[in-house]
């Protein structure tokens, strides 16, 4: 299972460097650095209040980080010097034939989705409840459609160019609805869907923005085991068929361990482990900080902890 070189350091799509986020006196994220590999499913885990959602909010521009750099490389072929150059230039992003590099901490939230191609879902589902499932997915294609309607003028007169784009947008929406198994509910208001379906709809909606990186905040929360398994399938499909890199926050270790190529563990805003599923699983610091341990492993964990007590205690007490 182990790859020769780690994909996330060789070919990162997102690099978070020295990210710090303070709310008044509270340091929610503390000097955090990690990479998300292109084409990987990366999981960000940690106990409640560890700062995971805050990291997401910084990456997607909803919070402006106190410190740190968040760089998104849209294409692999970006020259190494570009990022340093961009950082010095004070510009938000560089988007050329050689590939795009985006400094997300400098960009407003909607630009991050529109230009850099980062889409997200929310821990507390945020759908357009009074609009139908189909409409939700059409709203997600706002920017393309806006352009196709020549900023409304063309659309107002029903020009053929716009009509074609509108039909294509609908096709795309229908396509994604098929993948998330919601086609038969396309004309129902989103608020009417059961919880699990709402989660899937939110993912489909995010995908309709054509993201490079998809950030999912606890996508399996509130799902039953069958739905969880379906979600795993869906995430694999997104990664394999559409080449979208996925960054997800998840408490359900079943989901995390099964599908993640790379796991980052956070505790009190600090990174305490970073590696593949098997590496993280056996890391005593993780086990100490995190309660999400499989039943069978409890004994093993306890044995590990006994051996390394002094070590983990000093680590744990240092924050």
């Amino acid at each position: 299972m182990l790859k020769e070189t780690q994909n996330w350091s060789a070919n990162p799509v997102l690099s978070v460097e020295h990210l710090t986020m303070r709310f008044g006196g509270l340091v929610a994220v503390d000097d955090l650095s990690f990479n998300v590999g292109r084409g990987d499913i990366t999981a960000l885990i940690g106990p409640n209040g560890a700062g995971k959602t805050t990291v997401f909010n910084c990456v997607t521009g909803f919070y402006k980080p106190t410190e740190g750099r968040i760089a998104l490389r849209r294409d692999q072929a970006v020259a190494d010097g570009t990022l340093a150059e961009l950082t010095k230039s004070g510009r938000q992003y560089f988007d050329g034939d050689k590939g795009g590099v985006f400094l997300l901490e400098r960009m407003p939230d909607f630009k991050i989705t529109e230009v850099a191609g980062v889409a997200r879902t929310f821990q507390n589902i945020r759908l357009f409840g009074g609009m139908t499932v189909l409409e939700n997915l059409l709203v997600a294609q706002h920017n393309q459609l806006m352009q196709a309607s020549s900023f409304t003028i063309g659309g107002l007169f029903g020009l053929p160019g716009y009509r074609k784009a509108a039909a294509a947008a609908k096709d795309k929406a229908v396509e994604w609805l098929r993948h998330v198994n919601l086609l038969d509910r396309a004309d129902d208001p989103a608020a009417d869907l059961p919880y699990g379906a709402q989660r899937r709809l939110e993912i489909a909606r995010a995908l309709c923005t054509n993201p490079v990186l998809l950030c999912l905040d606890e996508p399996a929360a509130g799902l039953n085991p069958r739905e969880s398994a379906e979600l795993n399938e869906l995430l694999r499909f997104i990664r394999d068929e559409h080449g979208v890199s996925v960054l997800l926050i998840e408490h359900d270790m079943g989901v995390v361990m099964e599908i993640s190529d790379h796991i980052i563990v956070l505790d009190y805003g600090k990174k305490i482990a970073d590696g593949t599923a098997s590496e993280v699983r056996s890391d005593p610091k993780v086990i100490a900080a995190y309660l999400g341990v499989d039943d069978e492993e409890v004994d093993e964990v306890e044995r590990d902890l006994d051996v390394q007590t002094g070590h983990s205690a000093s680590e744990g007490g240092s924050q």
Binding site: F62, F110, A119, A140, A206, T209
Partner: peptide, 9 residues
């Protein structure tokens, strides 16, 4: 907020 997350200004 959802609008902004979808790239809408």
């Amino acid at each position: 907020i959802a609008c902004r997350s979808l790239g809408i200004n």
